[in-house]
Structures are given as structure tokens and as C-alpha cells.
Design a protein around this nucleic acid. Sequence first.
DNA 1: TTTCGAAATTAGGCATGTCTAAATAAATGA
DNA 2: TCATTTATTTAGACATGCCTAATTTCGAAA
Lengths: 220, 220
Amino acid sequence: MDLTTAEENYLKAIYHLSDGGKKSVSTNDIAAEMNTKAASVSDMLRKLGEKEVIEYRKYYGLQITETGKRHALQTIRKHRLWEVFLVEKLNFAWDEVHEVAEQLEHIHSTLLIQRLDSYLNYPKFDPHGDPIPDEFGDVRSRPRVQLNEMDIDQTGQIVAVKDSSAAFLRYLDKVGAYIGARIKVLDKVEFDGSLEILVDQKKTLFMSKDVAGNILVLQS
Amino acid sequence: MDLTTAEENYLKAIYHLSDGGKKSVSTNDIAAEMNTKAASVSDMLRKLGEKEVIEYRKYYGLQITETGKRHALQTIRKHRLWEVFLVEKLNFAWDEVHEVAEQLEHIHSTLLIQRLDSYLNYPKFDPHGDPIPDEFGDVRSRPRVQLNEMDIDQTGQIVAVKDSSAAFLRYLDKVGAYIGARIKVLDKVEFDGSLEILVDQKKTLFMSKDVAGNILVLQS
DNA sequence: TTTCGAAATTAGGCATGTCTAAATAAATGA
DNA sequence: TCATTTATTTAGACATGCCTAATTTCGAAA
Ligand SMILES: [Mn+2]
Ligand SMILES: [Mn+2]
Ligand SMILES: [Mn+2]
Ligand SMILES: [Mn+2]
């Protein structure tokens, strides 16, 4: 059974909020994530239940099914492949891609996505460092920690961001933090949890705990 | 005022059926082109009239407005640019692109279409030989004649096809007729209007009047 | 164990876009 | 000219997806 664009968006939100089916998700969580109202979510949950992409017992919550996961991962795969295309081929900045990918992810064509994948040379990560599921929905995940949780003198490499908003990404551009940068924690301020970071062995950066919490690092 | 996907599709159909605003178009013509019913068309004409992309007097027909032409040409531009992308970059065959382009043409992003145009090196024609309007809606048209209307011994170059259906395009592939091929009319059969054509000075081809009528030639 | 408040669902509406069937206007031709 | 055929529009339904307001359910606190 085919999903509508709205259904694909809801399912993707449910997949993300539930951390791939691990955590439970509330109607209100979904409403907040989708910028919609709880009543609309209830309606949609019933429909998604009928299409068997979630298992839904009203008043008791939901569970994403295996079919549902497959659909969600397929949409995520398309979203991230298009983001790579926009950045690598069309010279979009990493803060300009999200809105357009949000539309492109709903184009239906198996051939298209296969060819796009091949054209981009089977990328494993999108411009924000998020892993791209393969055509079977398998995700290659890397162990990553939030920068604010690292200790003084620990080192690593920035591999992803948690927040992909244009505002945050432009801030990172401005201060010179980017995916792939090698970093070292020079100092942590007890009082507010802010950090002093060495980037690429030459540049020193001060950032709040909040900012650091949205930067994901592969430790080394 | 923004147009919905359905409105964009209707407007494009009206633009094509009216030959860019020159001919008059009936409700039934539109219904046939859109695979829908006359009643749905009447409804939509009222809406398009309210949005002032057509001038609509019920029972008397419609006229596409200048604003309407701009919108239609913009959608046509996007459709054809995506077709070029699919063929040139993703190795689609020319008979595989239409359905996907029909979806891609509704993605909204000025930046996207500008960058795509530049990435493709500002192509002037799509894979079926149809001209791509520039960002201002200007179309570079070439004088073309239907192959079935050429006389014996006349020569030229195939520059476009009238019918872009997969069945027709695959037939052309099979017999070796392609955009850019140099041709010469060797013979015309009085009885049924069928033709004998020399392709690239080496291959001889027989085709019905029907087939020839869907091949457009730049004479030389 | 009962009560009460938060969370979730249902009821009822609205907009878009489709359909069939009924009504109406226009065109045709006797 | 006027009757009939044909094209077109309107009426009334239905599906999707959204909303606000009303109602129901659950579970935490008393
Ligand atoms: Mn994104
Ligand atoms: Mn991303
Ligand atoms: Mn096409
Ligand atoms: Mn084309």
C-alpha cells in the first residue's frame, strides 16, 4: 500500500522521535514535531494503523512496525541523498538544503533514487554527518558523543550536528567548525559548562554548553 | 498568489492545448488531456479565473493571461530542465523521463532551478527536442516541419518529436531514428502516405505517415 | 478508592480536488 | 424560428488533511 506525502512525513517524525522504534512517542510529541495539533495527529495515527505501518492502541500509544521502519528509512535515505546532491553538485550551502530535500524526498521513482545514489558514488553520510541508509534500510552508524560530554584533553573529529537549522549551521560556518575538523578540548568551565576547543591544531574556539551539545564527535 | 500542483498541471495543459494562448480550448479538450471529467474542469476553471491566471467567462471559454503564461512557462522550464538532468546526468533513456519530470516540475525553489540550469550548462532543448524557456519565459523556437509533409529529395535534421510516449520513443530507438540524425526523403507512397527515408547517408527506413507526422525536422 | 487534571480522542467544520447525475445554456439544422 | 442535440456548469458526495471545541480516558495525588 502506498503512503501519501503527509503519511510519509508523519512516519518519518515517528521514526525519529522513537529513535528507530526504541522509545515511546506521545501524540503531543508528534504534534509538536510536525507543527500541527494533537487532534490531527490522532486522526493520522488511526490511518497509519489501518495501513499497518504502526501498531496503534488508542489511549495507549503506538509502536512502529517493521514495514513502517522500512518506509521511514526509505524516506530518510531519499532526503539525505538529495541533500548530498544539492551540496556536492549544485553548490548549496549545508544550511540551504533542508527545505528543498523535504520536498524532493517525496518523489516516487525507484530508478531515480538508484541512479542518484550511483551518481553521487554511494555516499554514506549526508552534509550534516547523518548516515544514509542503503537500499535495504541498513544504516552504518558510528559511535558518537556530544562535544559537551567530552573531558579536558580528549580529542576527536567532528562527524555530525544534532541541530540542522540554518541559524546553527551558519553559526558553525562563522566560527570555523565543520564536519571533519579535528578537535581537542582545552578547557571546560565548571560554572556554565562552556568549553574551550582547539580546532585543527591551530584555532581556539569558545562555545556554550548548548552549542557543544549539538556537535557530535568521533573520539580518538 | 501561489498555485497548487493541480493548478500548475491544469495551467500547463491549457498552455499547450491553446498553443501558447493562440488557439481556443474547450472544457472537454482539457478533460481529455488531464484524464479527468468535464465537471472537474469547470470547477478548476473557476478557481484559475479567481487567481487571474486565465480570463474565464462561463459557457464562452477562456483566455490565458500574461501572468498565466509566465506560470505555465516556468513549469514547462522546470519539467524540461529536469528531463535533461535525468538523461545527461543520471543516464535515463529518453522514454523514461516524463513521469518523473512530471513530479519534479512541482518542486518549489528558485535557487534549485537556477543552479540546475547552470549545472546543466544552460541547455536550450530537452531530450525530446522541445525548447527550454529561459528564466524570463523566453523561448527560442526553431522552424520545424513534420516529416510527412516533406517532399521527395528534401533533406534535413531530426530536431524533435511530437509524441513523447514511451512506446513511440522506443520504436524510434529500435529503428535508429534519433534527435540530431540527418535525413533525406527517398520516396513517398501516394496510396497511404508512407515514406522511405535515408538516415545519416547510410541506413534506409520505411515508416507510416502516422509515425512521420510525429517527427519534426529542421530543413536544410 | 475516589477525584481531578492532563493527555488523547471524537465531533463537527472547512478547503482542495475528485466523481456522477441533474440542470442549463449554446449551437445546429429542419 | 424553434426543437433537439451537445457542451458546459451546478448539485451533491466522497476522500484527504487540517482546525477548534467538546468529550472521554488514564493515571497521579489525595
Ligand atoms: Mn534535512
Ligand atoms: Mn541532513
Ligand atoms: Mn515530459
Ligand atoms: Mn520533454
